[in-house]
Simulated scan of single mutants.
Amino acid sequence: MASRATMDRMDRVTGWWMFAGVMLGIAGVLNVIWGIAAISDSKFFANNATYIISGLHTWGWVTLILGALELTAAASLFAGGGFGRWMGIFAAGLSAIGSLLSIDAYPFWSLSVFALSIIIIYQLARAPAVE
């Protein structure tokens, strides 16, 4: 027979938690790659784009740190911990804000990331279903 803590964890981890974990993991990897590219002066970023936070290098560090937070949240969500839920909400919230800050350079991409972040926040903030 499984322990009470294991049963509670199994009740919390639903398909939406897995979805949120996968999406946070993908976003984390992409943000780490984009952060490294911005720090190393890659040429695929929009020319003459204005950034709210200083310049491209600073925005690269912000994106890299956000990616690390998202990867940590995804790993914790896969482990089924309550910490992952709150960390996922926090990381998705920062991702939503960050995507709106870069809307001038990449409008469609920014709105897509914003919408996905809001879905992740909603699903993680919902109370687990009680049977």
Score class of each variant (00 low, 15 high):
E131L: 12
G80A: 10
S3C: 10
Q123V: 14
V13G: 03
W59G: 05
F19M: 12
I89A: 09
G93D: 09
Q123C: 09
E131R: 11
N31Y: 11
A49I: 10
A46F: 01
G35A: 08
A115S: 02
L124K: 01
L116P: 06
E131C: 06
T63P: 01
R12N: 13
I26K: 07
I33Q: 10
T6N: 07
F83A: 14
I121W: 05
W59N: 01
A79L: 15
A74Y: 12
N31A: 14
V32I: 15
S76G: 02
R126A: 14
L71A: 05
F114H: 09
S3Q: 05
S102Q: 14
A92N: 07
D104Q: 12
I103T: 05
S42D: 13
H57D: 02
M10I: 13
Y122E: 04
S76C: 07
G88H: 03
G82S: 13
T63D: 03
F108G: 07
V29F: 14
L64F: 14
G15R: 00
A91N: 11
T50Y: 02
I53G: 08
L30A: 11
S3G: 15
D104C: 10
Q123I: 04
Y122Q: 07
Y106P: 10
E70I: 00
I120Y: 04
S110L: 11
D11C: 00
L56F: 05
M7T: 14
V62H: 08
H57R: 12
F19P: 04
G60W: 07
F44N: 05
E131Y: 13
N31I: 03
N31C: 11
L94T: 00
I65C: 12
K43I: 08
W109T: 02
L124S: 04
F44H: 00
A79W: 13
T6V: 14
I120K: 04
W61T: 02
I89N: 01
F108N: 07
A105W: 06
A37Q: 03
A5D: 15
I121T: 04
S99F: 00
M18D: 13
Y106W: 14
R12A: 08
V29E: 03
I120Q: 00
